[in-house]
């Protein structure tokens, strides 16, 4: 039988926070009206009531862990003894980690580029075709589903049966129908990374598509008309008007997808768990968190690596976001 008791905790959990805000403010209101005027220390108290829960969460879940991770990266696997930069030295020598870094780099080059390119092309096509909205919906749909779900979908496509058997994976069925040997795609080192990346491109193209679609509407109609009158071909219009105009948007999309890719974890864990040379940083970190009882030192170094990769791109993203807000 299904156990629905977890859903009861849900109500209690949410109620707890609603009650906190309601009753603390309610009493403060009572006190204020009794005194007849708002005192400044009450204002500070009010601010404290508003801010406290978020602040506590912020300190426990973000501030402290960041400092602690930094500290732990200089300690042994149990976080007890100081080992200096040993974990970092390990990181630079470990072949598995080097593999992971290289793969991450590959992901960073291939996925954002192709997703952005496909998104741009599809947005352009869909904008001019009457059934474009439906097409956009379909291509955007993978954004809604989980990486693991997408992993299952694609693992089914990559499925491999021996050469004599009937292939139930679409890719091998196509390969066989052209008279080639079926392949166990996700076990072929180096190339298998591309097959994992395909999943991510399949998902992220939708994001690029909707953002481009919105941006395309911002291109002045007159400019496009003028190009047409001047006899520019559609390709020419695309490369010399649309692409330059969308320049900032391309950058935004590229940064967003890059950040997702830097932290890519679910797809690799579900598809190969880093076997056959598909290791990536985030998966390796997860692995070290639990490998041999967990190694908090090495895990922390890996977490720091991920953060160092994310910082500049995220900073660029936030800067862009704030700039847009100003306009």
């Amino acid at each position: 039988m299904l156990d629905i008791s977890p859903l009861l905790y849900v109500c209690l959990g949410i109620l707890f926070f609603l009650c906190y805000f309601h009753f603390s403010n309610f009493f403060l209101d009572k006190i204020d009206t009794k005194k007849g005027k708002i005192k400044s220390h009450n204002l500070n108290l009010r601010a404290f009531i508003f801010v406290a829960p978020a602040l506590i969460v912020f300190v426990i879940f973000i501030i402290y862990p960041v400092l602690e991770t930094f500290r732990l990266s200089f300690y042994d696997k149990y976080g007890r003894d100081f080992v200096g930069i040993n974990n970092y030295l390990w990181a630079f020598k470990d072949p598995e980690l080097r593999r992971g870094l290289l793969n991450n780099l590959g992901w960073l080059i291939v996925v954002p580029t192709l997703s952005t390119a496909f998104g741009l092309i599809i947005a352009n096509l869909a904008d001019r075709i009457w059934w474009g909205t439906i097409a956009k919906s379909i291509i955007f749909m993978p954004m809604a589903i989980s990486f693991v779900g997408a992993g299952v979908i694609w693992k089914f496509i990559y499925d491999y049966r021996g050469p004599g058997d009937e292939q139930i994976g679409l890719l091998n069925a196509i390969v066989v129908s052209f008279g080639y040997e079926p392949q166990a795609w996700i076990t072929i080192p180096i190339w298998n990374n591309l097959f994992l990346m395909a999943i991510m491109i399949w998902i992220q193209t939708g994001l690029a598509l909707v953002i481009f679609s919105a941006a395309l509407r911002g291109i002045p109609k007159e400019t496009l008309e003028a190009a047409k009158i001047d006899g520019a071909s559609e390709f020419k219009t695309f490369t010399s008007i649309i692409v330059p105009y969308l320049g900032p948007t391309i950058l935004v999309i590229w940064t967003i997808i890059t950040i997702v890719v830097l932290k890519i974890f679910d797809i690799v864990l579900a598809m190969t768990n880093g076997q056959w040379q598909t290791e990536v940083l985030a998966n390796l970190m997860f692995d070290w968190m639990f490998r041999g009882g967990g190694d908090s030192g090495r895990g922390s170094v890996l977490a720091l690596f991920i953060m160092i990769g994310v910082i500049p791109i995220m900073a660029l993203n936030i800067y862009k976001h704030k700039q847009e807000q100003k306009i």
């Binding site: 801010v51 602690e68 970190m285 968190m289 994310v310």
Partner: peptide, 26 residues
Amino acid sequence: NFFGRDTLLALVIASLVVPLQMSLIP
């Protein structure tokens, strides 16, 4: 208006760059 508001806001925005992997182990 409360004491330290702008610092807090800056800190929260800055923390956007922190990937959640940083928090897992601690």
